[in-house]
Design a protein around this nucleic acid. Structure first.
Length: 457
RNA sequence: GAGGGUGUAGCUCAGUAGGUUAGAGCGACAGUUUGUGGCACUGUAGGUCGUGGGUUCGAGACCCAUCAUUCUCCCCA
């Protein structure tokens, strides 16, 4: 056999039939719930102008954007300019002559761009969902791919906390349906802002969030070290340690955090919005837990209110969903004062979790239902006619491609997990019957050809 | 960007301290079986041991480089 020399770009994958079916099961579940909650679909291009994306995801994020090389760089007329601009690229700057487009990095920024461009036409509040791949030039590892799907639902044009309640319920509903046990973590950037305020300045917010976000990974001592490196005083660090040591039930956490930052206006607001979402969500019934996580910060710095993150229980995997409220995402694109809130599902990680915990139902494997045996020229003509009758009734069938030993045809059906075979040989041809065999049970019976629809509908 | 692991048949992997002609299971194909699959038995095909250098009388094994892949950190879904 010839040596195969082709390969796939790092971090990308092909999906074979059974994987696609399982992925579709997840997509369909999410899409269905999005529709159920009144969200409408939107699709945007795989690529955006580089300007649209740059600077939206922080310094690290910018590095992970896949940039697209411009066409026509070999144009002799422009060579001098291009050489000069390429020097800038070597210094880490982007220039439009070299690259001006990039693959989308997430779905939120393209959505904000869409809202800004179409603001006048939208009925507010505007609720859209979007299920498309995104690309990141990250180094692949467990649960991390360079091409992966996000499923986002966002509401813009409303400051109502009802939206947060709805989105929390969407999370709970989807994971209940999929049978994945999760913990939906909730926090408010306002509480973090209040913490920064009593620690001497709003400008410390980013430093503080980056450090405390790592608590469960590196431990309290390392966090304190990092805070110290980031220029916080011992008194400030002491306050943060008090904040981080808050534990207990949701109610206990709220009481404790109120004692610490409840005297600040922003802190009070943050506590109130969490209380509101928690109380409202208790009205609906679902298994997934909604719990306060005061260390939850989220890297994206456009979040301003409630923030969410979803972790799967019983499995080692990064977050499988995240989101939050942003006050002014479209302001970056020239349309100010459009508040919004959204959540995102990471399908590829959800798939990995479900695979690891064996949560996919058997019924996901629905392929061909009936294989018609091919036992000769006359036989196959009759079989073909019968098969078309079933297909007309939406039953998927196949006729074996050549007249060969039954042995082979049986094995084909078995490998493709086709549950029924239909045998129509010379005997059956004569008396107008056919044999239906159930490959799972091994039972078979002879029926009239005219009764075939009854048999399978 | 930093640091580990792994590359041997289509797949999963053995390969002992460096020593003839590199193995197993599964899979594929053919047959036992020209109208009944799964089981069993028999046989066949398939590998310049990721690639390139080096050490050695001798390398799948040891050393260096390189590529691929995987995992961890950073960050994230």
């Amino acid at each position: 056999m010839a040596k195969v020399t082709v390969s796939l770009p790092q971090g990308t994958r092909d999906f074979s039939a059974d994987v696609v079916r399982k992925r579709n099961y997840i997509f369909n579940t999410i899409r269905h719930v999005f529709e159920l909650y009144g969200f409408a679909p939107l699709e945007t291009p795989a690529m955006e102008n580089l300007d649209t994306l740059m600077g939206k995801y922080g310094e690290e994020g910018d590095k992970l954007i896949f940039k697209i090389l411009n066409n026509g760089l070999d144009n002799p007329v422009k060579q001098e300019q291009i050489r000069a601009d390429f020097e800038k690229v070597l210094e880490g700057k982007n220039t439009k002559t070299i690259t001006e487009r990039a693959l989308r990095y997430d779905l939120t920024i393209p959505f904000a761009r869409y809202v800004a461009m179409n603001y006048g036409q939208l009925t507010l509040p505007f609720k859209r969902y979007q299920i498309q791949p995104v690309w990141r030039a990250d180094r692949p590892q467990k649960g991390r791919y360079r091409e992966f799907y996000q499923c986002d639902a966002d509401v813009v044009g409303s400051t109502s906390l009802l939206n947060e309640v709805e989105l929390a319920n969407i999370y709970a509903t989807v994971f209940d349906k999929l049978g994945v046990e999760v913990e939906i973590r909730i926090n408010s950037r306002k509480i973090l802002a209040a913490l920064a305020e009593i620690c001497g300045g709003a400008d410390k917010l980013t430093d503080i969030t980056i450090a405390i976000d790592k608590l469960d990974k590196i431990g309290i001592e390392k966090v304190k070290e990092e805070l110290s490196q980031r220029g916080l005083s011992d008194i400030q660090i002491n306050t943060i340690e008090k904040y981080l040591s808050i534990t207990g039930t949701n109610e206990e956490k709220l009481t404790a955090v109120t004692g610490l930052i409840g005297n600040t206006e922003v802190g009070k607001a943050g506590i109130e919005e969490i209380e509101y979402v928690l109380n409202f969500s208790q009205l609906s019934t679902h298994h997934s837990k909604l719990s306060i996580d005061l260390t939850l910060a989220r890297g994206l710095n456009y979040y301003t209110g409630i923030i969410f993150e979803v972790k799967a229980n019983n499995v080692q995997m990064g977050s499988i969903g995240g989101g939050g409220r942003y006050d002014d995402l479209t302001g970056l694109f020239g349309v100010s004062n459009v508040p919004g809130v959204g959540v995102s599902f990471g399908v590829d990680r959800i798939y990995d979790v479900m695979e690891e915990l064996k949560l996919f139902p058997e019924t996901v494997h629905t392929g061909v239902k009936v294989l018609f045996f091919n036992l000769g020229e006359q036989e196959r003509k009759s079989a073909f006619a019968l098969m078309q009758q079933l297909r007309a009734k939406d039953i998927s069938c196949e006729l074996f491609h050549e007249a060969t030993k039954m042995d082979k045809q049986f094995k084909y059906a078995e490998k493709k997990q086709i549950p029924f075979v239909l045998i129509l040989g010379s005997k059956e041809l004569e008396d107008g019957t056919c044999v239906v065999k159930n490959l799972v049970s091994g039972e078979q019976k002879t029926i009239l050809q005219t009764d075939i629809l009854k048999e399978f509908i």
